[in-house]
């Protein structure tokens, strides 16, 4: 631990500068994010449709499941927000349509739009849909657009299912009508063939035929009722609008709102990044072998002391590289000017 602390102390000004730059930039970015974010919100009251009016398809988004009405609608909106087609339809209804058309990467653009939406439930029947943007008028525009596109999608799905259900019931009605006619015809034929008094067996047969006819007519009536209900229920729901009421319309916000979370995230990331970078610098500074970078650094070798510094020999300054220097010195020192072993000359 001590070497790391020593390194941190040695590079304290560098670390301070790094932290100041990263933290400063983070704080500025966080404040800018907070000050330029305007979140617009719609509050919606939702009710579950009456079972008499509810459609029966399990795939219908309006189908009754074990959920609160608010969470059901919030889930529906969140699921729709996962699809590019839905987002594209939403954006096309707003002033962002030009930006979407000009975007080089549509997927990235739509992902950014998706992240700006937030759907939250508040109890069993209340939910809010919000959109955070740097442009204040864009928020209500986007919230209104998502609600409109959702309404279109739900209505379209309901109509499609009603048509399918109606077709099915019509087929069943045709079969039931044929069965009723057959039963009536069989009873008429029996009556025509047995004009007189009927024996017990014959009376039993006639009762069976009459029972069959009654059953066919009851089924016919039931199917007619279902066909009427299937045709009327969506219209009644659509007209009443009770199951999805926008209580508070989205407004153009005049003061910053909704940017606290993202600003806090930016600030936290900046602080964490600054700490991580500083720690990395300390670790690298400690683990990398330190060098004596100049005469002043020799004090780190105490009690050994600096005696002299021999300058670097360069081609420009000294006319020779270190290799040349050694060769030249050897040539000077060991120049054999006629010297012999053990004899001093000159």
């Amino acid at each position: 631990m001590r070497p790391y602390l020593t390194t941190a102390h040695r590079y304290r000004w560098l670390l301070g500068a790094v932290l100041a730059i990263i933290w400063g930039a983070g704080i500025v970015a966080a404040y800018t994010e907070y000050a330029t974010t305007f979140e617009s919100e719609a509050t919606i009251w939702v009710l579950r449709a009456s079972p008499e009016l509810a459609t029966t398809s399990p795939d219908d988004p309006n189908a009754t499941v074990i959920q609160t009405a608010a969470s059901q609608q919030a889930d529906l909106l969140n699921q729709l927000l996962q699809t590019k087609e839905f987002l594209r339809d939403v954006v096309r209804q707003t002033s962002l349509r030009a930006a979407l058309a000009a975007a080089p990467d549509e997927t990235k653009f739509l992902a950014g739009v998706q992240k700006s939406f937030r759907v939250q439930t508040h109890g069993n029947n209340l939910l809010t849909v919000s959109f955070a943007a740097h442009d204040p008028p864009l928020g209500p525009e986007m919230v209104n657009a998502i609600l409109a596109v959702r309404a279109d999608r739900v209505a379209q799905a309901s109509t499609t299912f009603t048509t399918i259900t109606n077709t099915l019931y019509q087929k069943q009605l045709q079969v039931a009508q044929a069965q009723a006619l057959d039963a009536q015809r069989a009873l008429d034929e029996f009556d025509a063939s047995h004009p007189g008094a009927l024996s017990d067996i014959e009376q039993h047969l006639k009762d069976q035929l009459r029972l069959t006819l009654d059953y066919a007519q009851i089924r016919l009536g039931d199917l007619r009722g279902r066909i009427n209900q299937a045709a009327l229920a969506p219209a009644i729901l659509s007209v009443s609008g009770m199951e999805f009421q926008v209580v508070d319309q989205p407004q153009v916000e005049t003061s910053p709102r909704g940017g606290t979370r993202s600003a806090a995230m930016i600030g936290a990331v900046a602080i964490a990044a600054g700490c991580a970078l500083a720690a990395l610098l300390v670790v690298i500074g400690t683990l990398l072998p330190a060098h004596v970078s100049g005469p002043a650094d020799v004090s780190r070798l105490a009690p050994a002391r600096l005696f002299a510094a021999v300058p670097r020999v360069t081609r420009a300054g000294g006319g020779a590289s270190p290799g040349d220097l050694r060769t030249s010195l050897a040539a000077i020192a060991f120049a054999d000017g006629g010297a012999r072993n053990g004899e001093v000359s000159g």
Binding site: P295, A304, L306, F307, A308, A309, V310, P311, R312, P322
Partner: peptide, 8 residues
């Protein structure tokens, strides 16, 4: 004593 070689 320390002799610092190839000093800048």
């Amino acid at each position: 004593y320390i002799v610092l070689n190839r000093a800048r």
